[in-house]
Every structure is written in C-alpha cells, then in structure tokens.
C-alpha cells in the first residue's frame, strides 16, 4: 500500500458473512494492517470502493456505525459480475477497500430534532449506520421513528437489527412487507401509505429515506402530504459509480458528481434535476 495514490486500495480481511436474504449478504471486515485501521475514520452515509482482485471494483456504503469501530460492515445485493464474486467471499478472504468517499448524513442538521427513517430493501444499509450512531448518542435527538419495508418477509434484511430496535426503547420501530406469507403476523402494506398511517409530525423533524427509486418517489410524495418541506427531507442518490472521487464522470448528474458531492442530499438540493433524469 503506497502513500498518496487514491486509487490504491487497502487490503482487508473478511471476518464474517451473514446471509440476509436470498440475494443480499452482509460482510464484516477489518484492516489487515492495524496501523491503517488506527488512522481510519468515516461518517455515516459515506461509501467506499470494494475490490475483488481479478474481477473489479464496486461501490457500497459502509453500513456499520462509526460509533462501533471494532470492525466495518458492508452489504451487497447480487446483481452483476463483481457483486456475484463478492457473494462468493468466505471468512478469511481478502478484498480491496478504498475510501471513505462522499459526504455524510448531516448530523448537525439532525441534532436535537425528531427523526423519521424510511428505508426499503437494501436501502436500510446506509440508514442503519446512522440509526446505530443515533442510538449511541441517544440524548442528542428527539423522538426517533424507523419504518422499514421489503417486498416479502423473506426480503427483510438486517433482521437482527430490526429485532434489537423493536425490543429496545430507543426508537419506535415499524416493519412492513408488500406481501405477507403464512408465517407473517406483522404489518402488510407499501411503505408510503404505511408512513401516512403512522403520520409523524413534520414539526422539528427531519426525514431520512433510502431505498429503490420507485419507493423514494412515492415516499417523497407522502412526506410532502405530511407537511415535510424539501429542506426537511434527506435522501441518498443512487447512480452508477466507478472512481468514487469525482473524476470518471459516470455519476455526473446536473453539475454534481454523486460520488463526490453526494450521495447524501436534501430533497431541496436535488429536486430540480431529479424530475427529469430519474
């Protein structure tokens, strides 16, 4: 590992593999070189470039919390060449890691506010980093609601988190699925109507949402109905990335590079170009 070349990854070791759903896995990983680990910091919402040497690089957020630095975590849905190779990883395998990149959830904006987290599918990954961060500094925030949904009970990721949050008294936890199954006794319904039914007050509140584009689109509408202004809504933009540092041009949309200027934005910042390109 050389000093100042931003494209050179750290070598990391996989410590644990968790099968979240049929096509999503979470990986716990750690620096091979302790001195690098000591220097490393990140903030909730930031992402990194992960390599499988011989296959290539792909972009995922760091899904663990910076308040819990024992190890790092990332979660991957199997979708293409690199993610398929990542899904083959076993405990003890090595990956490349460079980052953290991008901006982060605006903790200064969130401090002292009520928080509404709305996550869909694997979109909970960046949110859970922030949720654990909030739980670990619970006194700094008002009421916290988490609404998480997936297509079916089998598609719910991070079940261990959902359970922990549900049991604890730090947050109000709501889980919903689009379609239940025989064993499902919980809530059934799409995220936006469920959100409207919960009906959190927009007063002194910030909503943070992440999920598939179609969910985001309707969640934004529901939040507007509940009185949230574009400035009170924080979301992450999904765009194809490669370099992670605002050079390769792939994630350029409007005058921003999602990787360098994002991926975290208030809805106010992106509503102009969101309409046409998404």
């Amino acid at each position: 590992m050389e000093g100042d070349n931003v494209y050179i990854p750290h070598v990391m070791k996989i410590e644990k593999v968790i099968q979240e759903t049929g096509n999503i896995k979470t990986f716990h990983f750690n620096f091979k070189d302790q001195s690098q680990k000591d220097k490393f910091t990140f903030k909730s919402g930031q992402f990194a470039e992960y390599s499988i040497f011989g296959e290539g690089e792909a972009t995922f957020c760091v899904s663990s919390s910076p308040t819990r630095m024992d190890h790092l975590e990332f979660s991957v849905m199997k979708a293409g060449k690199v993610t398929a190779a990542i899904h083959e990883l076993q405990e003890g395998d090595e990956i490349g890691f460079r980052g953290p990149y991008g901006n982060w959830f605006p903790l200064d904006l969130l401090q002292g506010k009520n928080l509404v987290f709305v996550g869909g599918g694997i979109g909970l990954a960046p949110l859970r980093s922030l949720i654990w961060n909030v739980i670990d500094n619970r006194d700094s925030y008002g009421d916290v609601i988490v609404l998480y949904g997936a297509r079916s009970p089998a598609d719910l990721s991070f079940k261990y988190d959902l359970e922990a949050w549900d049991k604890g008294d730090a947050i109000d936890m709501y889980t919903t699925v689009d379609r239940g199954d025989d064993a499902w006794t919980g809530r059934v319904g799409l995220i936006p109507p469920v959100l409207e039914e919960i009906g959190p007050s927009a007063q002194d509140t910030v909503a943070i949402t992440c999920g598939p584009p179609i969910m985001i689109k309707f969640t934004l509408q529901s939040l507007a109905k509940l009185g949230f202004t574009p400035e009170q809504i924080v979301t992450t933009l999904e765009m194809k990335m490669k370099c992670g540092i605002g050079k390769c041009g792939r994630c350029n949309i409007g005058n921003i590079y999602v990787c360098k200027d994002g991926p975290v934005f208030t809805y106010a910042q992106i509503q102009n170009f969101l309409s046409d390109e998404f």
Binding site: Y7, S51, I52, F53, G54, E55, G56, E57, K242, C243, K247, C248, G249, R250
Partner: peptide
C-alpha cells in the same frame, strides 16, 4: 472528454488493474 472506466485483468492470482 475525460470519462473513464476501471477494470481488472481476469486473473485472481496475479493481474493488473487498468483504467
């Protein structure tokens, strides 16, 4: 125009990363 892509040589043991 300066857009680029990053690829690995298809060899897990010993290979190049190229742009």
């Amino acid at each position: 125009c300066h857009c680029f892509d990053i690829h690995d040589e298809n060899n897990k043991k010993d290979g190049l990363r190229v742009r």
